[in-house]
Design a protein around this nucleic acid. Sequence first.
DNA 1: ACTGGACTTGACGTGGGCGTCAAGGCGGAG
DNA 2: CTCCGCCTTGACGCCCACGTCAAGTCCAGT
Lengths: 123, 123
Amino acid sequence: MRIGELARRGGTTTRALRYYESLGLLTARRGANGQREYDEADLRLVSEIRSLTGIGFALEDTRPFVECLRDGHASGDECPASVAVYRRKLAELDECIERLEAARSRVRTQLAEAEKRSRPCAR
Amino acid sequence: MRIGELARRGGTTTRALRYYESLGLLTARRGANGQREYDEADLRLVSEIRSLTGIGFALEDTRPFVECLRDGHASGDECPASVAVYRRKLAELDECIERLEAARSRVRTQLAEAEKRSRPCAR
DNA sequence: ACTGGACTTGACGTGGGCGTCAAGGCGGAG
DNA sequence: CTCCGCCTTGACGCCCACGTCAAGTCCAGT
């Protein structure tokens, strides 16, 4: 299939696919007319990239998963490097959530105080 | 005081202060030599901006607080517009935390499965 | 007089993940 | 032949909160 179909089937755009290629995440054979030619394995790679970025992974973080798939593994997270990314992401998420919750509690406190001042005689 | 001192006392940089001014968050009187001249009220504004952005507010979100202070209020969050930003931010934080927690649980699940596959006979 | 530090404006750079436009090639339908 | 849709590369735009550099001005100290 060509790039347009891969984009449609992968739920993304041709621009994104070419960008992935520029990062070395995706490689394409070229047809006689110079156009990119993809197969089902490539669709699998795109799906992996999209599902991971959809969770919040950066493109660079998807690289181990993609390479794992290209090495013939059935799942992108069967390789140690992918698992390491999982762990790192998990730690990042923990820290991020922690910071946001701290921020939320501060905002809540501020909001409660501001409302108390604006309605000093509230029942 | 001049811009360097305001930056030091406000815990930021001269570049940031000029940027705030370009956004209309900060205004400065000019001395005879064309240099910006600030007073304690300006330091108060800078402190308000910094503490809010420190929590994760965008600069535009600090505008109501700054204007509230410039209107003579003792606290930046005494005005309805500021309280509205609090509420909006709180909703944003809730949604963001929710998404991140969902992502975290997905990553946890993936990690657990990946480890199960890599150690199929683990006790 | 000279040096050094603080100040001025203007303008480009950063990062991430593309969007969007430009200018053109290739192939099939009518 | 023309038109349309798909493809190609290259390059600039976007967002945000500044960092950083350039080139010059102003002032205090020695």
